[in-house]
Every structure is written in structure tokens, then in C-alpha cells.
């Protein structure tokens, strides 16, 4: 699933590891989500949305 995670992370000048700490996951998990290899669960998607103060739809795009 396509997402804007990399852009949102870059806007805050966070590394993958720093974002991983905010989400309490591994850096590999962040990398897998960013590259579309892993679709996050609903709880993790909500966590991301809250962290960036956006809705889930504004971060993830299931149309592609």
C-alpha cells in the first residue's frame, strides 16, 4: 500500500530509527511500511495518524 510516511518523516527531520522509537517498533518495521512491504495493523495505523496529526487516509492510499 502506498503511503506518505517517508515524506512526513523527512518533514520532521526524523530518521527511520527515531520514528521507530515514537511508534515502539523496530527500524526494519518502519522501512518495511515505507517501502510498502508491510501494511500496518489498524492500531499501528492509528498510532501513525495520531503522531502526525493526520487521518489514516491522509497517510495511506489504498487506490494503487
Amino acid at each position: 500500500m502506498k503511503n506518505r510516511l517517508k515524506v512526513l518523516r523527512a518533514e520532521r527531520d526524523w530518521s527511520q530509527a527515531e520514528l521507530a522509537v515514537h511508534l515502539d517498533v523496530s527500524r526494519q518495521a518502519v522501512n518495511a511500511i515505507e517501502t510498502g512491504k508491510h501494511d500496518p495493523s489498524l492500531p499501528l495505523a492509528f498510532k501513525l495518524a495520531r503522531l502526525f496529526d493526520l487521518s489514516i487516509e491522509e497517510i495511506f492510499d489504498d487506490q494503487n
Binding site: 530518521s15 530509527a17 527515531e18 521507530a20 522509537v21 511508534l23 515502539d24 517498533v25 523496530s26 527500524r27 526494519q28
Partner: peptide, 14 residues
């Protein structure tokens, strides 16, 4: 990634 450089922050779960 269990051992190696630890410069990067690591989450509690990891």
C-alpha cells in the same frame, strides 16, 4: 540486527 553499532535509537519493544 541483534548486535552491531548501537548509535541509532532503539524502541522499547525492539
Amino acid at each position: 540486527g541483534i548486535v552491531g553499532p548501537q548509535e541509532e535509537p532503539v524502541s522499547q519493544s525492539t
